[in-house]
Amino acid sequence: MAKDISVPFSYTKDGIYYFERRVPRDLQKHYSASKIAYSLRTRSSSVAASRATRAAQQLDEYWYHLRIKGSELPGKHLLRMQQNATKAPGSLLPSEHDDNATVSQSEAVAIYLRLKGQNRPVTFHRAAERACGYVIDVCGDKDLLGYSKADATRFRDAFIERKLTGSSITRIFGTVRSVVNLAASEVGVNITNPFTGVYYDRQSGVIERAPLPADVIKAVQRECMKIDDDLRWLVALISDTGLRLAEAAGLLREDLVVDADIPHVVVREHPWRRLKTCTSARVVPLTGMSL
């Protein structure tokens, strides 16, 4: 890591600028870490200086409210929801007497994670925070009613400029739409989501994966028989069932039913291994090398 005195609150790693600022001691109770650090996503010192300065100003404003009003305002990445605090969850909602009030993007993601993030893996939380963090970086942390279609297209153009694949853009837009829709519903406002119906080439950069040829699968299976250890058993099980690696690695012995009329494996959720989707729970016949 290296410091660049021309860019405040920053350091560089592999040529990329990162924002870094320590949380004041009197406010650390609101945070899950002692400092805030994230990539500024640029190699340009002038761009980094602008972004770092803006981030520092936003933090100063947040910290002012935290000190003066005791507000538990959600931070962009590390400020955690105080679910056990005396303030009710509804305190994030706007005043019922303010017809034009809604919530900011950073507040929206906090509402989203509070409602839909229960018992979800850390990757779910990171995906929502990352996607909405992109919105804040490109378009600002606006009130939900303040975003326009021009903001959404600028958001899209930023990803195209970074050469993200169409599937990655689709995933990010899907998360942002879900956050905006749920938060708007929670605060009781009707909104035309500007992040809906944005055009881009969904096939851009997407490479269709070809299935492994049968002779390659047979060669792998022969090697599994030769080496004959637990890792090769796992590969062999996957080779003829199509199970996901995580599904196969998370099985219990009783999930393998080999004495039935049709030998099969029961794929189900365990405390140590979640399923990717609710419909992933299934019974898969054991045949060939997997049996």
Rank of each mutant, 00 (worst) to 15 (best):
residue 93 L to W: 09
residue 66 L to D: 07
residue 134 Y to F: 11
residue 239 S to Y: 03
residue 182 L to R: 04
residue 188 G to I: 05
residue 259 D to R: 03
residue 275 L to M: 10
residue 103 V to M: 09
residue 91 S to Q: 10
residue 265 V to Q: 05
residue 160 I to E: 14
residue 96 E to R: 15
residue 158 A to Q: 08
residue 2 A to F: 11
residue 57 Q to S: 12
residue 90 G to I: 06
residue 187 V to G: 09
residue 17 Y to K: 08
residue 291 L to P: 04
residue 8 P to I: 03
residue 189 V to L: 05
residue 20 E to A: 15
residue 54 R to D: 10
residue 142 K to N: 13
residue 91 S to H: 14
residue 255 D to Y: 03
residue 232 R to G: 00
residue 217 I to Y: 04
residue 129 E to F: 08
residue 115 L to G: 07
residue 242 G to T: 11
residue 269 E to D: 08
residue 15 G to F: 14
residue 109 V to R: 13
residue 2 A to S: 11
residue 147 Y to Q: 09
residue 47 V to M: 04
residue 151 D to C: 09
residue 279 T to A: 13
residue 188 G to Q: 08
residue 257 V to W: 05
residue 99 D to S: 04
residue 273 R to I: 00
residue 19 F to L: 02
residue 271 P to Y: 07
residue 282 R to W: 04
residue 72 E to Q: 08
residue 158 A to S: 11
residue 221 Q to W: 00
residue 183 A to H: 03
residue 140 G to T: 03
residue 206 V to M: 00
residue 121 P to W: 07
residue 37 A to T: 14
residue 75 G to E: 12
residue 53 T to Y: 05
residue 87 K to A: 15
residue 145 L to M: 06
residue 135 V to Y: 03
residue 222 R to F: 01
residue 22 R to M: 10
residue 205 G to I: 00
residue 39 S to A: 11
residue 145 L to K: 10
residue 32 S to R: 15
residue 29 K to W: 11
residue 143 D to Q: 15
residue 186 E to C: 00
residue 226 K to L: 12
residue 5 I to K: 14
residue 138 V to P: 01
residue 108 A to C: 05
residue 146 G to T: 09
residue 134 Y to T: 04
residue 275 L to V: 10
residue 44 S to F: 03
residue 175 T to D: 06
residue 12 T to Y: 09
residue 64 Y to R: 15
residue 242 G to H: 07
residue 205 G to V: 00
residue 18 Y to W: 15
residue 145 L to Q: 06
residue 72 E to T: 05
residue 37 A to L: 07
residue 126 R to E: 14
residue 275 L to R: 09
residue 262 I to S: 13
residue 134 Y to H: 11
residue 57 Q to Y: 07
residue 18 Y to V: 02
residue 28 Q to Y: 08
residue 291 L to R: 13
residue 219 A to N: 15
residue 207 I to Y: 02
residue 197 G to H: 00
residue 217 I to W: 05
residue 65 H to N: 12
residue 34 S to A: 09
residue 155 F to T: 02
residue 152 A to H: 02
residue 151 D to R: 02
residue 202 R to C: 02
residue 46 S to L: 07
residue 66 L to R: 12
residue 23 V to M: 07
residue 251 L to V: 05
residue 287 T to R: 12
residue 135 V to Q: 02
residue 107 E to A: 13
residue 47 V to I: 09
residue 53 T to H: 06
residue 40 L to Y: 10
residue 216 V to K: 14
residue 146 G to Y: 05
residue 8 P to Y: 03
residue 228 D to K: 14
residue 164 L to K: 02
residue 64 Y to S: 12
residue 48 A to Q: 13
residue 76 K to W: 12
residue 89 P to Y: 13
residue 159 F to Q: 02
residue 258 V to Y: 05
residue 147 Y to T: 08
residue 253 R to S: 14
residue 119 N to F: 13
residue 227 I to T: 13
residue 6 S to C: 02
residue 250 G to P: 01
residue 40 L to T: 08
residue 216 V to T: 13
residue 65 H to V: 07
residue 135 V to K: 00
residue 193 N to C: 06
residue 251 L to S: 03
residue 283 V to P: 00
residue 5 I to V: 04
residue 235 V to W: 12
residue 120 R to W: 06
residue 225 M to A: 12
residue 186 E to H: 00
residue 14 D to N: 15
residue 37 A to D: 11
residue 183 A to Q: 06
residue 186 E to R: 03
residue 51 R to K: 15
residue 253 R to M: 11
residue 13 K to T: 10
residue 136 I to Y: 02
residue 216 V to C: 10
residue 239 S to E: 07
residue 44 S to Y: 09
